[in-house]
Nucleic acid binder design. Structure first.
Lengths: 241, 241
DNA sequence: GTCATTCCCTACCACGTGGTAGGCCATAGC
DNA sequence: GCTATGGCCTACCACGTGGTAGGGAATGAC
């Protein structure tokens, strides 16, 4: 008695889980309601009873996923503000978040491709503010622990993309890797390198103890800023800067 | 006479172009033969006359795309072997290759998600060998121009992914960026940062232009003015090799 | 001329799709 | 007891799908 929700939630939940898995693996168009119903173990009209249409199901799946982001992202900002080590720990956690269930990553990548406008709308609501905060933090650290020529906003977007896409394709890469010899299993190597790339492209390698003074401020040498994307590859021999 | 192919190729070509575009934008399952036929300006059975089935069309599209890779990748190896500057130039060229037609990138990402096995098979045939060569080059430069703790194979995979995914989503990111203030347009900023990340996570920032001999026999260390003085790799396993 | 081939077409088909109509059977409230 | 509601079902439908059958116009070989 007392109707302790014998399974009012479970069913909806089960549907969401299977739908997430299938959407991530085969895409929205590649997944039929029939397939989802089969995976859950019910009939198609029962499915439509819980989610009135396929599109509503998709939105529910996406909302559920992005809700997790909502927990994760603020922690990233706070942790990043707390110093390099924390930044390290949290990026690792983010990667782990997707890594333990790569379908999350794959789903996001798919949606970004399939419905860029929807995804942009969602992103501008819940991740762009975080991007702004992170960019600000980076900007403040630039020249000290942070490489002087980082473009903060651009970096954050690319880093997010790097982590998510990196996880989404980790399985594929893994099976293409020559298999670890001295290093560990391919999966760990990939994860570790993912983190290393994200970090070492932002934070100066030699920043041993950093954090104290900004040694060698080196007054951001010019050459930044202009979009030399169209420059001839030649003529930039010692651009290293 | 001689039937100089009045339009034996054009039609097939047109179909491939439109199919590539639509597959990239809406995915394989999200694209109907009808839609492709409409885009080309012919009827569906005419389409099926050129490509006996939708799946064969998909394969043809993919083959055409990967054929371009076949031109690009060996150049990367050669250029990378030629020194850091060339490496720079060619990564920029790769990004440009996808950047000028982001559908190429999107298509690859989609295929990698939709048919990982097929894609792995293709990759293991044509890009894994290149990855091996690049990894070897990196390994040789490690401790010198290259960061000592890079995992070569893992890096190369992630770099490829970074560039392709970065381009695939550049449009989305671009519209989320706060719009350039002092820096150039968002697109250029993103491209530039993409290249910077790829490079600075592989190559030591202060590595004064090597390019000559690899060892950099302490000849005129850092002309004090420009290069970021104070080499001191610090804590790095010096020249472990 | 005839024939063969290539290319594109109209008409059609079986099938899987997302979605609907309506019934059955539990439990819950009264 | 009776009714109401919610969850799941069978049966069905309109439609878009990938793909086929076959005809007709243009071209080139002989």
């Amino acid at each position: 008695m007392a109707a302790l929700t014998p399974h009012p939630l479970p069913m909806r939940e089960k549907i969401l889980v299977e739908a997430t898995r299938l959407f991530a693996r085969h895409g929205y168009d590649g997944t039929s309601l029939q397939a989802i119903a089969d995976a859950v173990g019910i009939k198609k009209p029962s499915l439509i009873h819980h989610f009135a249409s396929k599109d509503l199901l998709r939105q529910a799946v996406l909302d559920a996923q992005l809700a997790h982001w909502n927990e994760l992202l603020p922690r990233l900002v706070l942790a990043a503000a707390a110093g390099e080590d924390q930044f390290d720990a949290v990026t690792r956690e983010i990667v782990r978040f997707f890594s333990t269930n790569p379908d999350r990553a794959r789903l996001l990548v798919r949606e970004a491709l399939d419905r860029p406008d929807d995804m942009q709308e969602r992103f501008s609501r819940l991740v762009v503010p975080v991007v702004g905060s992170l960019a600000q933090l980076i900007r403040r650290g630039r020249g000290k622990a942070v490489h002087p020529d980082v473009d903060p906003e651009a970096y954050v977007f690319h880093a997010i993309n790097l982590f998510i896409s990196g996880v989404a394709f980790a399985d594929s890469f893994q099976r293409l890797m020559p298999d670890g010899r001295k290093r560990g299993p391919a999966r760990d190597r990939l994860t570790q390198e993912l983190l290393r790339i994200g970090k070492s492209s932002l934070i100066r390698p030699l920043a041993n103890q950093a954090s104290d003074t900004d040694i060698a401020p080196r007054k951001r040498t010019a050459s930044r800023g202009r979009s030399n994307a169209s420059r001839a590859p030649r003529s930039a021999p010692r651009e290293t800067e």
